[in-house]
Amino acid sequence: MLNLIRKDFIVMRSSLGLIPLYFVIFSIVLISNTMSAYFLVAVYTAFTTLMMSTGADVKNDNHAFLITMPMNRAQMVKSKYATALLYTGVAAIACYIFYTIVRYVKPSLGMPAYSMGQFLASIGISLVLVSIYLPLFYWLSKKGMAIINMAFMIILIGLTPFMNIGTYLMHKQNVGSINNASVALIGLGVVLLFIASYFFAKYLFNRKDL
């Protein structure tokens, strides 16, 4: 499986430079608004990277090539989910670090501290999106994916205003209204969704002609 993950990086090598660029662009767009859900930068960056990776797979007819090598379809799906997790985790951490540095360097902006809630939300929302996206990827053909990618870009763009309204409403009410129990429950739900998504994607991919 490590080989497959490494393959993703070799293949995307030339475009890997774009990712920090995206990160910076997203950050500039979102950080100016202190009420905004800055943590969405992590979601955007992680998901854009994933779309680059699936895009490369489709463009190169990767699956038909990979399956001729000593691996099975389960491994291909597993590695893709693993890289999605990787992107999510790295993006979430990078986001936190970047935000904290900016806050430290420019106290005049009066940015509130990056909360644990935001950090978890960045991971949670990414995982939910991935859980819906990847089974579609393993089910649809080239043409289908083009449509799906557009649909998800629209969803991503719509996330920012959606989150803005959401966090505004939360601040208007009791900020501490979300207690630990609900967070844990939501977290568990997200993890279960991710795992279920993996098995579903495996099932879909197993039956597909490449």
């Binding site: 070799i10 490369a56 190169n60 007819d61 090539f65 001729t68 090598m69 000593p70 099975n72 491994q75």
Partner: peptide
């Protein structure tokens, strides 16, 4: 396909559709 991983270690494939990564 149940034992496909072990099998494909011992199989070499040359195909008209060469799906290599063009930019590599």
């Amino acid at each position: 396909p149940s034992e496909e991983i072990a099998i494909k270690q011992r199989v070499g494939i040359v195909s008209d559709d060469c799906f290599y990564y063009e930019h590599l």
